[in-house]
């Protein structure tokens, strides 16, 4: 009865209306429902009627030129920013809700850890806030896999930019999130470290949305690509489709570049 009532209200009133509970059983299974979302900063439109749906286990790359609205989109998804209009749900929940936050592992574009805490203390602190189970084991595991053992007692200020980025990556996934929202996660990382991260991400049984403007990273990490320009989606498809277009004699960079230029 409650289910039908909610469906009725949703149809009759407004699809943008907010419910705190999951509306539909199928939505509750979906990491992301992002429909007709718009966001402006004053007169500047950052995101305009954007639609993204991500299924369980799906890995999606968000491509776009500088200022296309990628970071704003990710901030809205992570619950740190409220859209002006539209409908956003994480596993059927509002992004600002605690249950949605428990699912999400968010990494911003230029992250910084707690500078007065050591690498290990940072992980323990955020692990405690995230209420991570078996925290000590989890911290050891991340330190080992991300090769931070030699730096675990050091403060972030004495770390190289790459090691700081590894720490931030570890902080964003300490609670083993089922949905990772990452803005340029491989910034500052050297090629062997990128390889380690690729492998670690592949070992995680999580859904991903990764913002990047480096095509090779999108190719390696994801199977679906969304290209946005001026806050609007201009292309959404499988990586294989882009590769198909590549066979016409153009490089993938050329293909993507042309797609970005051909904005209606």
């Amino acid at each position: 009865m409650q289910y039908f009532l909610k469906v009725f209200i949703l149809i009759m009133i407004n699809k943008g209306m907010e419910f705190t509970k999951a509306e539909f059983p199928f939505q509750a299974q979906m990491p992301l429902s992002f429909r007709n979302v718009s966001k402006s900063y004053g007169k500047n439109v950052a995101v305009k009627g954007l639609n993204i749906e991500i299924k369980n286990g799906e890995k999606v790359a968000l491509l776009g030129e500088n200022g296309a609205g990628k970071s704003t989109t990710l901030k809205i998804i992570s619950g740190l920013m409220r859209p002006d209009a539209g409908y956003v749900r994480i596993y059927g929940q509002l992004p600002s809700s605690l249950s949605a936050k428990q699912h999400i592992g968010y990494l911003p574009e230029d992250p910084s850890p707690y500078l007065n805490l050591s690498v290990r203390e940072n992980l323990e602190y955020i692990g405690a806030i995230r209420q991570t189970r078996n925290l000590e084991t989890r911290v050891d595991d991340l330190i080992y896999h991300l090769q931070l053992k030699n730096y675990e007692k050091q403060k972030p200020l004495s770390l190289s930019r790459g090691n700081k980025q590894k720490l931030c990556l570890a902080l964003s996934i300490i609670h083993e999130p089922s949905f990772c929202v990452m803005d340029e996660p491989l910034n500052y990382l050297d090629i062997p470290t990128q390889e380690i991260i690729f492998q670690y991400f592949e070992s995680m049984n999580s859904s991903f949305i990764i913002s990047t403007h480096i095509l090779s990273i999108a190719r390696r990490l994801t199977e679906r690509i969304i290209i946005i320009s001026s806050g609007t989606k201009i292309w959404d498809g499988k990586l294989a489709e882009l590769e198909e277009m590549e066979r016409t004699g153009k490089s993938m960079e050329n293909v993507v570049s042309e797609l970005m230029k051909n904005v209606p």
């Binding site: 500078l115 007065n116 805490l117 050591s118 203390e121 323990e124 602190y125 692990g127 405690a128 806030i129 995230r130 209420q131 925290l135 000590e136 911290v139 007692k153 403060k155 200020l157 004495s158």
Partner: peptide, 20 residues
């Protein structure tokens, strides 16, 4: 570098609120 205090702390085994 900042004049950050260097007391080592542990946050394992404590709850969210207590950690904050």
């Amino acid at each position: 570098n900042s004049n950050n205090f260097s007391r080592s702390q542990t946050f394992t085994g404590i709850g969210r609120n207590k950690a904050i």
